Simulated assay, not measured.
Amino acid sequence: MPAVVIANNGDVPEFEGRITFSVFVCVVIAACGGLMFGYDIGVSGGVTAMDDFLKKFFYQVWERKQEAHENNYCKYDNKKLQLFTSSLYIAALIASFLASKMCSKYGRKPTMQLASIFFIGGVALTTFAVNIEMLIIGRLLLGCGVGFANQAVPLFLSELAPAKIRGALNISFQLFITIGILVANIVNYVVGKIHPYGFRISLGIAGVPALLLCFGSLAIYETPTSLIERKKVEQGRAVLKKIRGVDNVDLEYDSIVHACEVASQITQPYHELMKRESRPPLVIAIVMQVFQQFTGINAIMFYAPVLFQTVGFGSDAALLSSVVTGLVNVLSTTVSVVLVDKVGRRALLLEACVQMLITQVWI
Rank of each mutant, 00 (worst) to 15 (best):
N8I: 03
G326T: 05
Q265P: 00
A7Y: 06
N248E: 15
N170R: 01
N78Y: 08
L93F: 15
Y303W: 04
Q360G: 10
T325G: 04
A206H: 05
L142D: 01
E277C: 10
G204E: 05
N298V: 08
L157Q: 03
Q293D: 13
P209C: 10
V23W: 02
V153I: 12
G216T: 15
G17K: 02
A304Y: 04
Y89H: 14
F308P: 00
N170W: 00
L327N: 08
F291V: 12
V187E: 03
E229Q: 12
L357P: 00
S202H: 04
V208K: 04
C260W: 00
L35Q: 04
V233C: 04
T126G: 06
K164T: 08
R276I: 15
L319A: 05
I228H: 03
C32Q: 09
V340H: 04
E14L: 11
V249M: 06
I136D: 00
V23T: 15
R244V: 07
A317D: 10
V153P: 00
P209D: 12
T334Q: 15
R200K: 13
I358K: 07
A3Q: 15
G204L: 03
L320H: 05
S158P: 02
M288T: 13
V354P: 00
L319K: 03
E14T: 09
K105S: 14
V153L: 05
G45L: 06
K65R: 07
A210H: 09
R139P: 00
I117M: 14
K79Y: 14
C144R: 00
V130A: 07
Q289L: 13
E222F: 04
S315K: 04
A263T: 11
Q292H: 12
E67R: 12
V246W: 06
L93A: 15
L175A: 10
K75R: 10
E252R: 04
I284C: 13
G216W: 15
R166P: 01
G34F: 05
S44F: 07
V338T: 13
Q293C: 13
F199L: 09
L83C: 03
N248H: 14
A30Y: 03
L227T: 02
P280I: 11
Y59G: 01
G180F: 08
K65Y: 02
Y76A: 03
